[in-house]
Structures are given as C-alpha cells and as structure tokens.
Design a protein around this nucleic acid. Structure first.
Length: 282
DNA sequence: ACCCAGGACTGAT
DNA sequence: ATCAGTCATGGG
C-alpha cells in the first residue's frame, strides 16, 4: 500500500458515490477502493469528512470526485416532494463524477441491457485484455485506437455480446477523427446530445449518461428502466398512457438545473429499496 | 429453469 | 409518431 495523503472532503460519501452505477471500475479493498484515474493507479478511503488517497493523486482525486460541486446549493434546487426528500436523505454526499470522455462513453456503450455487476465485469475484462498497464497490476481503459484495432470476436470474448459492434465502430469513429470528443464540450446541451447519438450503439439514454458523467452537464437526465419506474410510480401514479417522450419532457422541466443530480439520487435510492416496494402499486 | 438488466436499432403500422 | 421483435450474456 503506497503512502496516503489526506484531503478535505466535506459532504461526500465515497462508498455510495462509487456504487451508484456511474463508474464501473472501482473495487473494494482494505476499507477503501482501488482503481485508475487517468493513467494512475489510485487507492482511496474515507475517514470522516476527509479522504486518504495515494500520494501524488490529490489533485486528480479532487477533480475526479467533483469535491468542488456545491452539494447543499444543489439540494436546494431540487423539487420539494416525498420521493426527492427520501432520496436526498439516503444519498446525501453522493457526487456526480468527472470521468474521462472516452472511458465513460465506452463503458456506457457496453451497459445496454446489462446489470451493474455485468458492466463491471466487462469493463475489467476490457482493461485487462486491451488496456495499457499502469503498474501494480492495474490497466487504463483501452484507448479508442486499441479497441478500433480489435476484432469483434475479441471484444465478444470480453462478454460484450451484441454490444461489441457498437463499441468497435464507435472506437473506430473516434480513432479516425470522425468524431472529436473534446470538441463536444463546446456544444450546447441539445447539440452535444445529438452528436453523441450519431455514434453507433449510442441512443438518448447512453448519450445522457455520458453528458452527465463525463461532460459535467448536470442537467442531463438519462431515463433507464429504473428511473422510468420511479417517475411512473411517484409522479404519474394514475396516468396510464405516458410516452417516453413525455416523461423526458416532464423531467427536464420538473427537476430543475441540477436534474442530473436529482436523477442519480432517485436512481441509487430506488435501486437499494427492497424488491417488495416495486411489486405493489406500480 | 426462469427473469431481468442504467437500450439501440430495424422494419412495419 | 408509436410499436413489437431482435440482439447476447450472466447474476439472482
């Protein structure tokens, strides 16, 4: 274990943040977590209102864990309703990470119709198989050039199934320069969403995840099966015919300028409720 | 053995 | 514009 440095991390919940289904690489170890930020192997653990991280990775950690996000101010913008209050109470301290663009895009392309546990497995398989070693047995997320050069069979061997084509083709588009992931930062939300949706294997849900988790578009509101359940259950209990399009419009207007944060809290809270909650009502 | 998962895409109404 | 069918895989 490398030497650790303490950094301030008020109003932060490391465990819930890393287990809330936005990043899929972190492995519990020795009371903390191990993973890779950029190209550095990192160990991080929480101790009260501070973090202890691998020496030399302090700045990386502050940026990656978004310790500068004003959480209390963000909570104050949330709508005041029972579902939102319960989610904030349970998820207090969860932060929306700043992940590298390609790493986030790639992993979410593989997320389609997969449970969080499976996404973690595929992500680790891809790193081990194609990622650059960064020391201590860790691997960076494989560069687009590397995945572009892989055959679809090799990608499928990592458990990707039908997602292999999307990941390979999108890797190719990025590697060839047909898409500039950095340039998307300069686009307004709608155009950035459209740009991502043009990539193979990327639709509205995955594009919104990437906008939220890599482009700091804290208003982006990805709607997956869980969030759809939450929205229908809490906000459209009696209405039967609500189209996905209508749900998306409601979310954009109702949850405000930090809708993405609200979404993440609703998502993580709902996923940790007992199954029996969802059996009745619906 | 079944069920479902942080969906996208295609082709038919 | 909606809608069903299809696409693979593995953990509960």
């Amino acid at each position: 274990m490398p030497r650790l440095t303490r950094i301030d991390a008020p109003l932060f919940d490391l465990k819930k943040t890393l287990e809330s289904g936005q990043a899929f690489q972190w492995v519990p170890q020795g009371g903390g977590y191990v993973g890779v930020i950029g190209s550095k192997p990192v160990y991080v653990e929480q101790e009260g209102a501070s973090l202890r991280v691998t020496r030399g990775c302090e700045d990386l950690a502050v940026h990656y864990f978004a310790l500068d996000h004003p959480l209390e101010e963000i909570y104050a913008t949330f709508p005041d309703d029972p579902a939102m209050r319960e989610s904030v109470e349970w998820c207090r301290g969860v932060r929306i990470l700043r992940q590298p663009e390609w790493e986030c895009l790639g992993t979410f392309i593989t997320s389609s119709m997969k449970q969080v546990k499976h996404i973690q497995q595929m992500s680790h398989a891809l790193r081990r198989r194609f990622g650059e070693p960064v020391g201590e047995g860790f691997h960076a997320y494989p560069a687009p050039e590397r995945l572009a050069a892989a055959t679809e069979e090799e990608l499928r061997a990592c458990g990707l199934g039908f997602r292999a084509r999307g990941l390979g083709e999108t890797a190719r588009a990025v590697a060839e320069g047909a898409v500039d992931l950095k340039a998307i930062h300069a686009l307004p939300d709608e155009e950035a969403l459209a740009a991502l949706c043009r990539l193979p294997g990327v639709g509205p849900k995955i594009a919104n995840c990437v906008l939220l988790f890599a482009y700091e578009r804290v208003r982006a509101f990805p709607i997956d099966v869980w969030i759809e359940r939450v929205l229908r259950h809490h906000y459209f209990r009696r209405k039967r015919k609500i189209t996905p399009r209508r749900l998306q419009e409601f979310a954009a207007g109702y949850f405000g300028p930090y809708g993405g944060y609200a979404q993440q809290y609703l998502f993580h809270h709902a996923r940790n409720l007992p199954r029996s909650v969802w059996k009745t009502g619906r």
